[in-house]
Amino acid sequence: MKLTLKIWRQKNADDPGRMVPYELDDVSPDMSFLEMLDVLNERLIVEGEDPVAFDHDCREGICGMCSLVIDGTPHGPQQATTTCQLHMRHFKDGDVITIEPWRAAAFPVIKDLVVDRSAFDRIIQAGGYVSAPTGSAPEAASIPVPQADAHAAFDAATCIGCGACVAACPNASAMLFTAAKITHLGLMPQGQPERYGRVTAMVAQMDAEGFGGCTNTGECTAVCPKGIPFETISRLNADLLKATRKAS
C-alpha cells in the first residue's frame, strides 16, 4: 500500500519543530509500524537526509521504550498493543498517518519522536520500592500472599512505564503510572511497612515533575498497552487520604 506520513521533526530540544510529510510506497500489511518507519529511514539515509529518530528496543511489547502518538492516539488504533506490535494491516492504502511524540512538559522532546521520560525513574526513586537489601530476605515461603491479592498486584505490576497514560491524558497526568506501583506494592505484605510514606513521597515527586492533575477521565486506562486497571488510581487516592489523616 501507499501511505502519506506526517511526522514531527525536531532537531533537538531547542528547535521549535514542525510536521513534515513523507510519501511511502510498497508498505506491506505484514510490517509492524516500526518496520514501516525502518523502511522510510533506510530511504532517507541513502538520500542523504536525516533519518527519523524514534525510541524502540525489544519490539515485542514489553520494554516500554516505543512511544508514538499515531493519529492522536498513543500507540495507535489497536487497543492493548504497543506501537512495536501494531501492524500495518490496520491501515489501508492511501491513508494519511500523523505521527507525533508524547506531549508533556515532563517529557521534553530530545529529537523528533524521542522524549525524555526520566521523570518516571525519579518517581520510582521517591519510594517505588520495598527496602529489602540483598541478603536480608526471610525464607520465601514464610509470608503467604492470598492468591487474589497476588493476582491484583500482578495486574498493576505489569506496567511497562511507557508513558502512554501521560500522553493520552487531557491533563498530561502521570497518575496511572504512579498508581500502578502504589497498588502493586500496597497489595503485597512486603509493601506494608512503607505503604503510606511511599504514596506521599511518590505523589509529591509526580507533582514536582510538572505532570498535570488527575480528573478521572479514564483516557489513560483506555490507551494503556497493558490494561492497567483504573481502580489503581482509586487505590492510590485511598492510600493518600489515609496517609494525610495519619500525618495530621
Partner: peptide, 22 residues
C-alpha cells in the same frame, strides 16, 4: 535458593497457590 527469598522480599508478585504459597 536465596534468589527466590530475595525477590519475594522485594514484592515480586510470583504466582501463588490458593493457600497463598508460591
Amino acid at each position: 535458593v536465596e534468589i527466590i527469598d530475595q525477590c519475594v522480599a522485594q514484592g515480586v508478585p510470583f504466582a501463588r497457590e490458593y493457600g497463598g504459597l508460591l
